[in-house]
Write a protein that binds this DNA or RNA. Structure first.
Lengths: 166, 166
DNA sequence: CGATTAGTTCATTTTTAATTGAACTATACG
DNA sequence: CGTATAGTTCAATTAAAAATGAACTAATCG
C-alpha cells in the first residue's frame, strides 16, 4: 500500500536512435533484436538500470528482458553493477570493444568451430573407409581444404582479439 | 518425345554429411540453410552442376535453387562454368577461403558498416543540437566510442582479408 | 512466518524469414 | 516461327525464431 510511483519515462529521440543503431548492429551478428535494444539502452544510460527499467522503457516483457540479460551476461557484454541496493540488481554494459568481440568469439563462434571439427573428423573417417573404387583423391583434397580453413580460423580469431586490444 | 532419362540420383551418406557441414557453417554467418546446401553440394561434386541437378539432388524448389545461386554468385562463392554446353548453365564453387571471406565482407558486412556510419553522423548532430543542460560529455563520449569501433572495423577487415591470402 | 518484490522458466502466440509453386521471360533448336 | 528447355520472379504458404505472459522459485523485509 505504498507508492513507488514509477512513472514510466519514455525514451528520448536520441535514445531511440542509439537503440536502433544497436539493433542493426546485432542483426549482423545473428542475434535477436531485443539483445540490441537492451544493450543499446544500457550503453546510453548514465547509470545502471534494473530489469524493470528495461521492461518499461523498451516496452518488452519481463521474460524477454530476463532472457536477453542472461545472454548478454554470458557474452560478457553486461554485468551486474557492484552497488548493492537491497534485493534489486542493476545492470551496466561493458563498453570495451576487445571484451565484446572476445566474448562473442568465445561464446558464439568457438562452439561452432569445434562442432565443425568433429564433423570433419567423421568425414575423414568416411573417406578412408570408402571402397577402393570410390575413395578418390578429390574427396581427400576437399576434406584437407576444409581442414585448412578451420586451422586458419583458429589462428585468425586470437590475432583479431589481440589486435583489438589496442 | 525423347528420353533424357534423368534418373534422380540421391545423395550418398558422405555427400549428405558434407552438405550438413556447410548448413551449419552458413548458419553462423546468418545465411539461410539452402545456401549451405547448394554450396556444399557444389563443393563436393567433381564436376559443375546444373540448376536442375540441385533441384533433384537436394529436393528443393526451382525457385530456391535460382535464388540461392544468385546470392552465391553475388557473394562470389559460385560461378558459371566456362564450358558452354548449349542453353544450360553449369555452376561451380570458388573454394579459396580468401575469396569467400572477401566476398562475404564486401557484400554482407560493409553495407551494414556504412549504414552504421551514417547513423553515427546523425547521432553526433543530435547531441550537438541538444540544449545546453542536456548536452553532456557522457553522450559525446559514447558517440566517440562508437566512432572508434567503426574505425577499428575499417582497419581490421582489410587486414583479415590480407592475412587469409596466404 | 507471510507478504512483497525480483527474477526465471517454458508452453503458447506472434513475428519474421525462408521456401514453394505457378506464371512469367528468355533462349535455343528444329 | 513454334515448341521445348532454362531460368526468374513474386505472392502465398510454411517453417523457424523470438516474444509474450502466466506460473513458478528465490530472496528480502516487516
Amino acid at each position: 500500500m505504498t507508492g513507488g510511483e514509477q512513472k514510466r519515462q519514455a525514451l528520448t529521440d536520441f535514445e531511440v536512435t542509439v537503440v536502433d543503431f544497436f539493433c542493426d548492429g546485432v542483426k549482423v551478428l545473428g542475434l535477436p533484436k531485443s539483445i540490441g535494444e537492451i544493450y543499446g539502452l544500457l550503453f546510453i544510460s548514465q547509470e545502471p538500470l534494473a530489469l524493470d527499467d528495461l521492461v518499461q522503457k523498451l516496452e518488452i516483457s519481463k521474460g524477454s528482458a530476463s532472457q536477453g540479460l542472461r545472454l548478454l551476461k554470458n557474452l560478457g557484454a553486461v554485468r551486474e553493477s557492484s552497488e548493492v541496493t537491497g534485493r534489486k540488481s542493476f545492470y551496466e554494459p561493458d563498453v570495451e570493444l576487445k571484451q565484446l568481440v572476445s566474448g562473442f568469439i568465445k561464446e558464439q563462434v568457438m562452439p561452432h568451430l569445434q562442432s565443425g571439427e568433429q564433423k570433419l573428423t567423421r568425414l575423414r573417417t568416411m573417406v578412408e573407409q570408402m571402397p577402393g573404387d570410390m575413395r578418390s583423391d578429390f574427396y581427400m583434397g576437399r576434406i584437407q581444404r576444409l581442414d585448412r580453413w578451420t586451422k586458419r580460423a583458429r589462428i585468425v580469431l586470437p590475432l583479431l582479439q589481440k589486435f583489438l586490444g589496442r
